[in-house]
Amino acid sequence: MKVAITVWQQRVSPVFDVSANLLMLSLHDGKIADEQAIPLPTSGPAAKLAFIAALQPDVLICGAMSAQIQHVAETHPWQLYAFMKGSVRRVMRALIAGGVLADDFSLPGCTARNRCCTGNKWAQCVAQEPHEKRFGRPLCQSEKNEN
C-alpha cells in the first residue's frame, strides 16, 4: 500500500493548497518498507493534486483543503483523509494499527461532528448546526440581532 502525506516539520502540513513537500511511504506487512520525500509543484493546488495522482497512492493524508480541490480529490481512487493533523510517525502508527484515522487526528474545528459530509454539503451542515453546539454557549444579543 502506498501512502502520500503532505508534510511540514515532520507533521501533516496544515494547508494542502500551499504544501511544499510530500512524503511517499510504502507499507508491507504492517511496516514502512520505504519512504521518499518529494517536493510538490509550486504552481497551485490543482497542479499539486495532479502531481500526487500521477504517483498513484492508495491513501492521501493532508491538512485543510479548499472545497473545489477537495471535490476533485474525491474523484480519485484513493482513500482521502483531508483536514488532518499530527506528527507523521503518529499518523502512520494509527493508520497501520487501525487502517483508518480517528477524530484525534482532525484539525481543530474539523472533527467528525462537523464532518457529517464533505465539500459544499459539509458547509451546509456546519452552518445549520445550533450555535450552542458549535461554540458551547448560547447566542448573545448582538449575534441574535445579526441573525
Partner: peptide, 9 residues
C-alpha cells in the same frame, strides 16, 4: 487567507 471547516478560503 485561511481555510475554514467548510473548505472556504
Amino acid at each position: 487567507y485561511f481555510i475554514n471547516a467548510a473548505g472556504e478560503r
